Amino acid sequence: MTASEAPVPGDPQAGPAGRATSTVYRLLVVGILLAISVAPTVVLSFLIAPHPSNVPLVVASALFVGPGLSAALFALGERARDDGLAPAGAFLKGYRMNVGDVLKLWVPGVAVLAALTWTTVNIAVAGVPAWWAGILLGLAAVVVLWLVQATVITSFFAFRGRDTARLALYFLGRLPRVTLAVLSVLVLAGAVVFLTTPAVLAVFGALLVALLLRWEKPLLSEVRLRFVES
């Protein structure tokens, strides 16, 4: 270790305890900002009447989740730490930098999800076999996985929208372990919402984002290695 790399005496972040405290603080701040950014989705989920016909409206309200998720991913990523950005500053920078690109993907993605859920809840009226509901739900799960992968890529790389869309779809099959890990995170998030309320998920969302980011490291590494010019 060189003199410039040696820890500064008295540095509160030196040592395991200091790093742990810094990590907890970053998670806490990012969690609060994430909860604020997805508050419209939480509020709308309470205001919309709990009726099967309103499920597409609840799905459509999830549009606010995309930019918040991207900002949280950026704030918890290595780039923000390497740049020495404070948690709040990193979150706001990630939000401003990626909101446009994220919405370009989330608007059509959420529209497709709303259409799939509307068709599913009205499948009996349509007079088609009930097993079609399983196919529609499977398609919805693929769309959600694709949205998450696309958001992760957008949070750290500046590709064109259609290129990000293709990469996200490509990596669903290219890295099946990552896809399964992401699916497990989504199942956990769904279980939290089902057993409690969306507000609880918003409060503890930063922990799930950190878990998601950990599992997405192979994807980010491969994107950087294969698709980013050095």
Score class of each variant (00 low, 15 high):
Ala158Val: 12
Ala210Lys: 10
Val59Thr: 15
Leu63Arg: 06
Pro50Ser: 00
Phe159Ile: 14
Ile135Met: 15
Gln13Pro: 01
Val193Glu: 08
Leu219Arg: 09
Ala189Trp: 02
Thr21Glu: 03
Leu172Asn: 08
Gly31Tyr: 05
Gly127Val: 03
Pro56Leu: 11
Val223Thr: 11
Thr2Val: 05
Leu183Trp: 04
Leu103Met: 13
Gly10Phe: 05
Ile135Phe: 13
Val107Ile: 15
Gly18Val: 07
Val8Ala: 11
Met97Asn: 10
Val65Phe: 09
Leu201Tyr: 00
Pro87Arg: 07
Glu216Tyr: 03
Phe46Val: 08
Asp82Ile: 09
Phe171Glu: 11
Ser155Val: 00
Lys217Thr: 10
Leu220Gly: 02
Ala62Pro: 00
Ala191Phe: 13
Leu167Trp: 12
Ile48Leu: 15
Ser184Arg: 07
Ala202Phe: 03
Phe194Ile: 06
Arg96Tyr: 05
Pro218Phe: 12
Thr119Tyr: 04
Ala111Trp: 00
Phe171Lys: 07
Gly127Tyr: 06
Gly77Leu: 04
Val152Gly: 05
Ala20Ser: 06
Asn54Lys: 04
Ala141Pro: 00
Pro129Ile: 11
Arg214Phe: 13
Gly68Trp: 01
Arg26Gln: 06
Ala17Trp: 05
Leu137Ala: 12
Arg177Phe: 12
Pro129His: 10
Val58Asn: 11
Leu44Arg: 06
Trp215Ser: 09
Gly31Thr: 06
Ser37Ala: 14
Val30Thr: 09
Ile123Val: 13
Arg162Gly: 06
Val228Ile: 15
Ser53Cys: 06
Leu201Ile: 02
Val223Trp: 10
Gly190Pro: 07
Ser184Phe: 10
Pro67Gly: 09
Gly10Ser: 10
Val59Leu: 08
Arg226Leu: 15
Ala202Leu: 05
Gly94Ala: 04
Ser230Asn: 14
Phe194Gln: 12
Val142His: 03
Pro52Cys: 14
Ser45Val: 00
Asn54Met: 13
Arg214Pro: 00
Gly15Ala: 02
Leu103Asp: 01
Leu73Arg: 03
Gly31Cys: 01
Val29Leu: 10
Pro9Trp: 07
Gly89Cys: 04
Phe156Glu: 11
Ala126Trp: 13
Ala115Gly: 14
Arg19Ile: 01
Val43Ala: 13
Ala126Tyr: 12
Thr179Pro: 03
Ala6Asn: 07
Ala75Pro: 00
Thr120Arg: 08
Leu92His: 06
Trp215Ala: 08
Ile153Thr: 03
Leu27Ile: 01
Val182Pro: 00
Leu186Val: 10
Leu137Ile: 14
Val203Leu: 15
